[in-house]
Simulated scan of single mutants.
Amino acid sequence: MGRVALQINSIIRFGFNRNSITSFLWDPWLFGKSVMTVFPSSNLDSLIPLHAMVSDYLRDDGWLLPAVVSDTIAISLQHFKFNQETNGTLFWQDSNKACFSSFIKYYHREEAKVDWYNLVWHKHFAVKYSFYTWLAINNGLKTAEELLKRTIRVPQSCSLCFVHSETTGHLLYECDYAFSVLQNLIPMVIKTAVEAKLANWKHTENLRISWAG
């Protein structure tokens, strides 16, 4: 979590008011760093309560710091221009209405958007199923083939049909036994419709392989 927090220091800002819950010692409110990082040799953690908030020492006309704080630190803080906010403590860039999706987009900003994105993370996705779909596309399912790559030796035949080698592709769109189970679980789905879906999946798999290569 610390590594992630360091990545977003430059694009977050803190608002200060009497109700702010920003930690005086540990939150990166001072020029993108924490007080403990800016003044590492000051031993502030032994002079100021560990749970102290910025609001404990902030007044309308400036700072009211404990006498134990050195003049060097006091002067530095007096020159620090803080954002007076009536509501809220932590803000995302210039927005007062940040949401988790903003963080996700920023965190993954340097990653390429793959062709099969909408197949997995669509509007009505369920995390459980999307996660396994994502694993399957990235060859992350613990099939015999993948386990062997990790030097884990298990029988290589399919655990369902015991005929062909167990690979992600076989389990999803080649195994006759897996398909018969699917037909029995969803009897209203006719074979041609399911095969069309699986063909589309196979096409997506080919796109993934070409993209990865």
Rank of each mutant, 00 (worst) to 15 (best):
S20K: 10
I73P: 01
S102G: 05
P49E: 12
V114H: 14
L47R: 05
A112T: 12
T37L: 13
R18M: 08
G169I: 05
V154G: 09
G32N: 09
A52I: 09
K33L: 05
T168E: 09
V54Y: 03
Y177T: 02
F100L: 14
I152G: 03
P155S: 01
S159L: 06
M1Q: 11
K123E: 09
L58K: 06
K113M: 15
A196G: 13
Q183T: 09
V163M: 11
V54E: 11
R13H: 13
E146I: 10
K33D: 03
S41W: 10
C158S: 13
L135G: 09
A98F: 10
V120L: 07
D71A: 03
N83P: 08
L207Y: 08
D56R: 02
L58Q: 07
L135R: 10
K97F: 10
E145R: 15
N96P: 01
Y106W: 15
N19C: 08
S10E: 15
S165G: 14
F91K: 02
D71T: 04
Q183M: 15
A199M: 11
N139C: 06
P66T: 00
W121I: 02
K202R: 10
C175D: 03
V54W: 08
P155N: 06
R109L: 10
N17R: 02
S130Y: 04
L65R: 08
Y132R: 03
N184G: 08
F125L: 12
V69N: 01
F91M: 00
L44T: 00
L198Q: 13
L65H: 06
